[in-house]
Design a protein around this nucleic acid. Sequence first.
DNA 1: CACAGCATGATACGGGTGTACCAGGAAAGC
DNA 2: GCTTTCCTGGTACACCCGTATCATGCTGTG
Lengths: 201, 201
Amino acid sequence: MAAQVDHEERRRQIAEALLRIADTQGLQAASMRAVAAEAGVSLRLVQYYFTTKEGLLLDALARLGVQLQARMAQWISAAGTPPTPRSLMTAVLSCILPTDPESRRITRTYAAYYTLVLSDPALVEKHGTPQPDLLEGFLAQQIRAAQQAGEIDAGRDPGMTAAGLLAMVNGLGSSVLGGQRTGDAALAILAHCLDELFGSP
Amino acid sequence: MAAQVDHEERRRQIAEALLRIADTQGLQAASMRAVAAEAGVSLRLVQYYFTTKEGLLLDALARLGVQLQARMAQWISAAGTPPTPRSLMTAVLSCILPTDPESRRITRTYAAYYTLVLSDPALVEKHGTPQPDLLEGFLAQQIRAAQQAGEIDAGRDPGMTAAGLLAMVNGLGSSVLGGQRTGDAALAILAHCLDELFGSP
DNA sequence: CACAGCATGATACGGGTGTACCAGGAAAGC
DNA sequence: GCTTTCCTGGTACACCCGTATCATGCTGTG
């Protein structure tokens, strides 16, 4: 055999270079050569580990998803002891908002992928993106729990309320990235909505 | 003089070809040559009427803004007689949602521009985008009016509620374009939120 | 009628893109 | 030691991009 190299580490290095470019300059600037330069390797290496560009894009997207998932798990675990439905929802929703550098990076990179998928839906269709629906289900579950505890008006539809909240946070994130709003302002709006949802007189 | 041609008409024809491509294939597919082919003119003509590609992009974006504005004006004028704050808000918000072909087109094209601006903020900065803030102000004003009429709880912050609603509609639109939700489902969620905002027992 | 000027067509240039091909070197197994 | 396999570097190929240049129409005015 030859100089055995940690393939996974190399792939990670290259994929993260792609994500770094997607974050700072957008995905259309993430050419094979640019990724190679950013990762400090030769173009040939990028081709070797990811035969095609589509493979690289998909792999990097998967890693981005893992990063977001890790961040959310961390925020959930920091939601106080014991976690209440309200603290959990606050954690999950504000975790997605681009307030600190890491969330800005993740959100911006996801936004870069978003339009890519819009123009070429076949890219991710086979790959599947169960994340949003899972999140929505989790939120709906928390809402139901809060309703049984009498903290939320029982007349609300949990699914629709969850979907509305998640969509709002998405939209707030877009406006923050677009520079129309500050991250803290978005957080304040989210807090206001949660205050309204949980009766806080 | 030479064959005097309606310049504005030609510019419109070309710009709308650009918008059509941006809608169906994304902005990264909207090359000068593709726009020329879509508009049925030669590449040289596109260059003639819009010296540079940036000029073409900006002009088309401006036209898209006008189209959205016209659509909103139409929906507002169809908001019943006399228009109530609730009917106005419903009209404005559901007008943005991608439910019919026209709104799908507008929303998708705006989404295509969104990431372009994210990766190159200088493009639109000088050009200005007063639209969203105006809309937010309009919504806040309607909320205040409804509060004075006793239709909305006076404890709500009009600005934050307006911002939250607009962001939610934006996020709902994204999910519809992404195929995670149907346009009607998004409308139902919006209706549910408005029901909750205006006390409907 | 001729001329000036706007409108259009064809083509070229330099650069960037994804991918493919070919060669070579380094370590492990016989 | 030799070979086989894994890894890596360099380079080339088509193709598409935005823009510029040259040339040629056509038309309305003097």
